[in-house]
Structures are given as C-alpha cells and as structure tokens.
C-alpha cells in the first residue's frame, strides 16, 4: 500500500543523502520525494511517497527516526491529510487545438504559463490521480514535455 511520509529534519549538508542512502541501502523504494526549508531556516520538511507492507512501512519510519538529524516522522496515511503535486505540461497548441487545450485546463483549474505559436505550457496542481487524468486527456492532442514535482502533504487541522 502507498504511504505518504512527512519528515522534519535538520537543514544540514548531507541530510538528504542520509535519507536516500537509508532507502537504497535497505532496499526500500521512493516513488516521489520533495524537500524544502520550513519557516524555521534550520529545519527542512521532506515529503516522500513509498509503498510496502505494514511491517516495511514500520521499519521505514523507525529507521528514519533513528537518523540523528531527523526531528519528526509522520506517516500521513494514519491521519486525514491533503496532498498536492504540480506538473508543467507542454502541449501542442496550433490553430485547430488551442481552444480544446484551454477548455481542458479550465476544467482542471490549470493555467497557461508559457505560450508560443505552436504550443502552450500549462500548470496543473492536484493529487496524483488528477494530474494523471489531465495527462491522459492531453495526450491525444500531443504532449511534448512534462515536468512534475514530488508530492507534498499536510495533515488537516483538527476540527473544533
């Protein structure tokens, strides 16, 4: 089963390599990874998506905890949370297809971020399945290039 794990860690050189080295060394897989500074400049937040049986996920969280630079590990899948990815997709947009592309990205609440006479680059945010849906619909029109971020996630605030 897929798990989104959020890790708060000290923002020090080599920390990312400790995390990725742990995954490769112990044969765990990383499906996506995203990392950036938090409000505290000395703390980074790393979000990773991995999959495995419960005992593997338990090992992953325990081994992450064991790293000296790790402050907190949260398996998002145990709570309510929101997650997002972003994709920038360059799609063929010529006279016959421009309107169709605009309609599609409007439906998915995307926006055009770069325009040329032959293509649009569109920005889409959402969870993984929404981004895949956009890709599936744009593919027949002609996707030229895709870049995607890893997943980022945040637990939902407790309802009062």
């Amino acid at each position: 089963m897929k798990h989104t794990i959020s890790v708060l860690l000290q923002n020090k050189p080599g920390v990312l390599s400790r995390v990725t080295g742990l995954f490769s060394g112990r044969g765990f897989n990383i499906e996506s990874l995203s990392v950036a500074q938090t409000l505290e400049p000395e703390v980074s937040c790393l979000t990773l998506v991995t999959s495995g049986e419960d005992n593997i996920i338990e090992q992953i969280t325990k081994q992450l905890h064991k790293l000296i630079d790790v402050i907190k590990v949260t398996d998002m899948s145990e709570t309510e949370y929101v997650e997002r990815e972003m994709a920038i997709i360059r799609v063929k947009a010529e006279a016959g297809t421009r309107a169709e592309v605009l309609r599609v990205i409007d439906i998915f609440r995307g926006k055009v971020v770069d325009v040329s006479s032959k293509s649009y680059a569109v920005e889409i945010t959402g969870n993984a399945s929404k981004i895949n849906a956009v890709i599936d619909i744009l593919r027949p029109i002609g996707i030229q290039e895709i870049v995607k971020t890893g997943t980022i996630a945040m637990t939902r605030a407790k309802k009062a």
Binding site: P13, G14, S17, R18, G21, L22, G25, I68
Partner: peptide
C-alpha cells in the same frame, strides 16, 4: 559520504 551507512552519525 563513504561512512554514512556504517556509522551511527558522522561529521565534517
């Protein structure tokens, strides 16, 4: 880098 996986922790 070399000893990251075989130390409890390390420093430069």
């Amino acid at each position: 880098g070399i000893t990251r996986p075989c130390t409890k922790h390390n420093y430069l």
